[in-house]
Amino acid sequence: DHWEIRVGDITIHLKDVDEEIIRWVEEALRNGDDLEEIKRWVEEVLR
């Protein structure tokens, strides 16, 4: 699977990601969370 999350001008590409993570990231972006923080979290989860 390949996911693209778009929020404003930001697009995040994710592969082999659980839908729950996608929802979490979308929510975090909508809440204005720091992008670097989100990326770190996702990388942590995917490890």
Rank of each mutant, 00 (worst) to 15 (best):
residue 35 L to K: 04
residue 19 E to R: 11
residue 18 D to R: 10
residue 29 L to E: 01
residue 29 L to G: 01
residue 25 V to P: 00
residue 47 R to G: 15
residue 24 W to Q: 12
residue 32 G to C: 15
residue 42 V to I: 14
residue 34 D to H: 13
residue 3 W to L: 06
residue 2 H to I: 14
residue 38 I to Q: 00
residue 42 V to D: 00
residue 39 K to V: 13
residue 2 H to D: 12
residue 35 L to V: 11
residue 1 D to W: 13
residue 25 V to Y: 02
residue 31 N to T: 07
residue 11 T to D: 04
residue 24 W to G: 05
residue 32 G to I: 11
residue 43 E to I: 10
residue 34 D to C: 15
residue 21 I to K: 02
residue 44 E to I: 03
residue 5 I to C: 03
residue 23 R to F: 07
residue 12 I to L: 09
residue 28 A to C: 01
residue 39 K to R: 14
residue 31 N to Q: 09
residue 27 E to R: 10
residue 7 V to E: 08
residue 46 L to R: 01
residue 22 I to P: 02
residue 41 W to A: 05
residue 38 I to T: 02
residue 35 L to P: 09
residue 8 G to I: 06
residue 27 E to F: 08
residue 1 D to L: 14
residue 44 E to G: 01
residue 2 H to V: 14
residue 47 R to N: 15
residue 10 I to N: 05
residue 21 I to M: 09
residue 23 R to W: 06
residue 16 D to L: 06
residue 45 V to M: 15
residue 12 I to K: 02
residue 5 I to A: 00
residue 11 T to L: 12
residue 12 I to D: 01
residue 40 R to T: 05
residue 15 K to Q: 09
residue 20 E to I: 09
residue 36 E to C: 05
residue 1 D to F: 13
residue 36 E to P: 01
residue 24 W to N: 04
residue 10 I to V: 08
residue 2 H to F: 14
residue 15 K to W: 06
residue 3 W to T: 07
residue 22 I to T: 04
residue 27 E to K: 14
residue 3 W to D: 03
residue 9 D to K: 05
residue 10 I to R: 07
residue 32 G to E: 05
residue 17 V to C: 05
residue 23 R to V: 04
residue 42 V to E: 00
residue 15 K to R: 12
residue 33 D to E: 13
residue 41 W to I: 11
residue 28 A to W: 06
residue 24 W to I: 08
residue 10 I to F: 14
residue 34 D to L: 15
residue 4 E to K: 02
residue 8 G to V: 05
residue 5 I to G: 01
residue 33 D to R: 14
residue 29 L to R: 01
residue 32 G to H: 10
residue 47 R to Y: 03
residue 30 R to H: 11
residue 16 D to I: 05
residue 36 E to M: 07
residue 45 V to F: 15
residue 47 R to T: 15
residue 14 L to G: 05
residue 18 D to G: 13
residue 31 N to L: 12
